Amino acid sequence: MFFSEAGARPRTWEASPSEHRKWVEVFKACDEDNKGYLSREDFKVAVVMLFGYKPSKIEADSIMSSVNPNTSGILLEEFLSIVRKKKEVQLHRNEIRHIFTAFDRHYRGYLTLEDFKKAFRQVAPKLSERTVLDVFREIDQDSDGLVSFKDFEYAMNYGQNEA
């Protein structure tokens, strides 16, 4: 696959000291009664505070099932690890969105083959038109001649997981 060969990868990222302090402060603020851990509900509030959305039941179940069964909730170090991973995913998705937007010069919310050709002429002028067409067809899963952000994101992440 083209994206496997391209090696689409999120950059490694570390939280700044101020961001790390903010995460610790949120943990402490959400740790009702200073238990030393976050319950399921505490965790949901912390995610709202840091990311602006309430986690779904599936996300909360997944997080809680990964917690050490000998504890009653999420300890600070576990929480920091979870938040760091969520932040990395958020940054990677934003990077993919930025690339998609650069391709979508008409702000239509989808890409055409012509959009791909123009973008590739600018960033990889020696790439053959045949290769650009192959990439487009690979991403256009439903063969309707349009690539949505969802299709584009899937292709970028698929390439990342393949390599």
Results as ranks from 00 to 15, higher is better:
F2T: 05
F2A: 13
S4L: 11
E5N: 13
E5F: 09
G7K: 14
A8P: 01
R9Q: 15
W13H: 13
S16R: 10
S18P: 04
S18N: 13
S18W: 12
E19I: 01
H20Q: 11
E25H: 14
K28N: 14
D31A: 09
D31T: 08
D33P: 04
N34P: 06
N34Q: 13
G36W: 04
Y37R: 08
L38P: 01
L38A: 02
E41M: 05
D42H: 06
F43N: 00
A46D: 02
A46V: 05
V47I: 13
V47P: 00
M49Q: 14
L50R: 01
G52Q: 03
Y53P: 04
P55Q: 04
S56I: 03
I58T: 14
I58L: 11
E59F: 03
D61W: 05
I63T: 01
I63P: 00
I63S: 00
S66R: 06
S66H: 04
N68A: 07
N70V: 12
T71Q: 12
S81Q: 11
I82G: 00
R84N: 05
K85T: 09
K85R: 14
K87M: 06
E88A: 07
V89N: 12
V89I: 14
N94I: 07
R97H: 07
F103H: 09
D104L: 02
Y107Q: 15
G109P: 02
Y110S: 06
Y110G: 02
T112R: 10
T112D: 05
E114S: 13
D115Q: 08
F116T: 06
K118F: 06
K118V: 10
K118C: 08
R121H: 12
Q122K: 13
P125N: 12
P125G: 08
T131V: 11
T131N: 13
V135N: 01
D142F: 03
D144K: 07
G145W: 06
G145Y: 04
V147P: 00
F149S: 04
F149I: 04
D151Y: 03
A155V: 05
N157C: 11
Y158N: 11
Y158R: 15
N161T: 11
